[in-house]
């Protein structure tokens, strides 16, 4: 190896070797400025949803008719065993909320995954290729955004029958235009950067450019968007279940639980109230987390 020495360029001084950092420290750094109550609550919901089978105090599906419409434990006539009370069929509210958390999260995750992947791929194609591909995809987006979504969803669920799969597909298809729009805009920006030209010079195929070089620049936007939409999807699933076309009974869902209690709000308010609070807190936490992620992951704001 023959190397002719040249005047050394003033390089950036080597960064000092990073001191060994414990996991706890790294976690604390990553979460700096995060809305901790929201994060903690979401962690709780996630944990409860994962372990639902193991931690429910009672069977969430079959009730004990002798204990129907019991008030929460701290009210007169309440029982510690049914901490948040029971519904009209004697089913434990707490157990059903725990099961409902699992349903809500699965619906949210599955439909966002479906809509996100669909919208991201179509948005990438539209932004990268432009021309008629862009026209077709964006007109599809416009068409879908101009439909009265809730009505269409109601009709579709009545026609196809409400099942978990139909619900997920429907919400997923509902979500993709938002992703397609955002991703298209980001792709239009990224594809003009010189590093995309350099990737071409390096020999990358069009598909490689799209999915290996352009897509990673959009991840942050996607993460923020998915978080903010998770709350919205939980609300939407709640609305559909409330209207009776969501997750089919007897599977508990927060929306259907609220619906079940609406006739007895005066006498047994806890049947609707606690699932409503669970939904409120979860959606609020997701929105807080999403806002924080947006602030944190946006490179323009990081530099300030």
């Amino acid at each position: 190896m023959q190397t002719t020495k040249t005047a050394p360029e003033s390089t950036a001084p080597d960064l000092p070797a990073a001191p060994a950092v414990s996991l706890a420290t790294r976690l604390r750094r990553a979460l700096r400025g995060a809305p901790l109550p929201a994060v903690a609550f979401l962690a709780l919901v996630l944990g409860v949803a994962l372990l639902a089978d193991l931690i429910v105090p009672h069977d969430p599906l079959t009730g004990d008719l002798r204990a129907y419409s019991l008030p929460p434990a701290w009210k007169a006539g309440g029982s510690v065993s049914y901490f948040l009370g029971t519904d009209l069929l004697g089913r434990d509210i707490l157990s059903r909320i725990i099961m409902g958390a699992r349903i809500s999260l699965i619906v949210a995750a599955a439909s966002i995954a479906l809509g996100g992947v669909l919208g991201t791929v179509l948005g990438l194609l539209a932004g990268h290729f432009g021309g008629w591909i862009d026209e077709v995809i964006m007109r599809l987006v416009d068409t879908q955004l101009s439909l009265p979504s809730l009505l269409v969803a109601l009709v579709a669920l009545v026609v196809f029958g409400s099942s978990f799969t139909v619900l997920v597909i429907l919400i997923g298809v509902w979500l993709w235009p938002n992703y397609a729009r955002i991703v298209r805009g980001e792709t239009l920006r990224i594809r003009r950067y010189d590093y995309i030209s350099l990737a071409r010079i390096a020999g990358c195929s069009t598909w490689r450019i799209l999915f290996v070089h352009e897509l990673p620049g959009i991840y942050n936007t996607l993460i923020v968007m998915a978080t903010l939409q998770a709350g919205w999807v939980i609300l939407l699933e709640g609305s559909l279940s409330y209207l009776g076309v969501g997750v089919p009974p007897p599977t508990p869902s927060w929306g259907s639980m609220i619906a079940e209690g609406r006739g007895d709000l005066a006498s047994a308010w806890w049947i609707s109230m606690f699932p409503g609070l669970a939904m409120l807190a979860t959606v609020l936490s997701l929105n807080l987390l999403g806002d924080w992620l947006r602030r944190t992951l946006d490179p323009k704001q990081v530099n300030q």
Partner: peptide
């Protein structure tokens, strides 16, 4: 043309600050 670009003819771009992908 991909058999030409990078292999026979290659190019150095103007702005080194945007010529490398920041995520890799």
């Amino acid at each position: 043309f991909r058999g030409i670009r990078g292999k026979a003819i290659s190019m150095v771009l103007q702005d080194p600050l945007t010529s490398l992908n920041p995520v890799f």
